[in-house]
Amino acid sequence: MSESIVYWLQQTLNALQLGSIYALIALGYTMVYGILTMINFAHGDVFMVGAFFCFIAAVYLGLPFLPTLLLTMAGAALLGVLIERLAYKPLRNAPRVSAIITALGLGLFLENFTLALAPYPKHIPALLENVTWDLGGVSVSSLQIIIICLSLGLMFLLDYVVHRTPVGMAMRAISWDKTFVPLMGVPVDLIISVTFAIGAGLAGAAGTMYALAYPVIDPYMGIMVGWKAFISAVVGGIGNIRGAMIGAFILGGVEIMVTAFFPSTYRDFVAFSLLLLLIVIRPYGILGKPRTQKV
């Protein structure tokens, strides 16, 4: 293969890995927005706590990869439900700004609570044997393949749940207008909790995979990654699940390509500028539509 093709394939692979992790987190932002028209600003920190759950499962409990992943997802899902029930539900009919402030405060709480328990960055042991193959000059690691495949698998599963199951149907109905959903016999509070559980569980999966790819974790790791996932969701069209995935892969791609051509310090500046431009051109995001007026 010619050198430039090899180079591009390599960068595309790297972009897919980064994009997968952003996508898993972006889904949580977009699902919660879709159902409550609220930005859960604590979501990036749920991802961070997920990475720490992964650390606990792997180091203290000495679990192998798959149980670690499942335990982390379950722990994050539980955290998501607790956040919704204790912090957001009491404010559901309060002014919107109260919910935003609460979310920001919750994020700070999670960061500083974790900091109190873990003042120094933690190192995650290699849970998987990492084999690197050389495919015609493109270096492919087994970890990369696992991250990409697992993320895509979870995304397809979520897409199936949302579009093909009764729970997903109820979620979509609530996202349209939750006023009359109880008249269908649907327990709205339960569906909202399930939504938070799924979103946080996916963030937990992202935390695990991120910790495997970049094995040093700290309580502030969720801030930047969280912002980027949030921006991915907005670029894709917030509230739209497929949009969040597309937005995440675009952001991952842009970041990797920028570092390929410019000094790496330019990465976030160029990436965010491009995204701002995209938002100017398409204010509702790539797959987002202006909401039709409801009667």
């Binding site: 149907m169 979509r172 109905a173 349209w176 207008d177 009359f180 039709t292 009667v295």
Partner: peptide
Amino acid sequence: EGRGIFGNL
């Protein structure tokens, strides 16, 4: 009142 149809379903 207003039918409450879910337009996206």
